[in-house]
Computed example of a mutant assay.
Amino acid sequence: MTSNLSTDTLLRKQLAELLHGGFAPNVILLREFHHDKAGILLDGLHFSAWVLLGHMQARQQTLLQFMKSPEQHPAIWPEAHWPQNHTPQSEQEWNQAIDRFEYELNEMIALVLDPKNDLFRVHSNGKTLSWAAMTALHHNGYHIGQLKTMGRQLGVW
């Protein structure tokens, strides 16, 4: 069976689907997590759900900045940002952080879907937009898995 979609279009659509989180959409899982449990540190972990969200958002933002302006933002893997505060101050702060994460994720997806953006052009730092997008989906997926496990232990799901 042949597809009417070009390889480029198909790749962009699949990459966008995976950035959303595939079968476990990132933003839906974050919104389901109870804000009152977001600051709990489980035994053996050095982070709470709040810290994970801050870490994911910071890394995603760095990769997004590179994708928006590769030559102005070549530093794509600085020291990992781990927020020091383990608890959101309020439900509003938790929801605003999720909103910010979602907004930036949607910006990244729009860049991936835009055929004017060459996903495979190698920039001065040796990286491509496709590399940045795949790194974001891998990084977010890894930490969403941790968040899901934490949520199960905390009775969120």
Rank of each mutant, 00 (worst) to 15 (best):
V122N: 07
D118T: 10
A16E: 05
Q96T: 08
Q146P: 02
E91G: 00
D114F: 05
L119P: 04
A136G: 04
N117K: 10
N140L: 11
I76Y: 02
M56V: 10
P70R: 13
G54Q: 05
L154G: 01
A24R: 15
R152N: 05
K148W: 04
T128E: 07
S48N: 08
T87G: 00
Q65P: 00
T87F: 00
I109C: 07
P88V: 09
R121E: 13
A110M: 04
V156L: 06
E107L: 11
A80R: 15
Q61S: 15
W50A: 11
H138D: 12
V112A: 02
L29Q: 11
M67I: 10
K127H: 14
V112S: 02
G54C: 07
W157E: 11
S48M: 11
L10Y: 07
M150V: 08
P88C: 09
Q61I: 04
L29R: 13
G155T: 12
L111S: 03
V156P: 02
L45R: 14
V51D: 01
E71A: 08
P74E: 11
Q92C: 04
S130W: 01
L30I: 10
G155V: 13
L129I: 14
D43H: 03
L10S: 13
K13E: 13
E79Y: 00
E71M: 06
N125V: 12
F33T: 11
T62H: 03
L105R: 14
N26Q: 13
S3W: 07
H20F: 08
R12Q: 04
P78C: 02
N125E: 09
L119F: 06
V51T: 15
H55G: 03
G44I: 02
V27K: 09
H55A: 05
S3G: 06
L113W: 00
D99F: 05
L19G: 12
R59A: 12
L30D: 04
Q72E: 11
Q92K: 14
I76P: 00
L11H: 05
N95H: 13
L52K: 14
V112T: 03
H20G: 10
V51I: 15
T135D: 08
K127E: 13
S130A: 15
F47T: 13
H73E: 09
L64F: 06
N106E: 13
N117I: 10
Q60A: 12
L119W: 06
A49Q: 02
A136T: 15
Q153G: 00
W131P: 11
I109P: 04
W50R: 06
M67A: 15
E32A: 06
A75K: 07
V51L: 06
T149M: 15
L154K: 01
P78K: 01
I76N: 04
A80F: 01
A110Q: 07
F101M: 12
D8Q: 15
T135S: 05
L137V: 06
H20Y: 09
E102P: 07
D8A: 15
D114N: 15
F47V: 07
N4S: 14
T128M: 14
I76H: 00
H20P: 00
G39V: 02
D36Y: 01
W157A: 10
N95L: 12
G141V: 08
Q65I: 00
V112C: 03
H20D: 14
H46W: 00
Q14N: 10
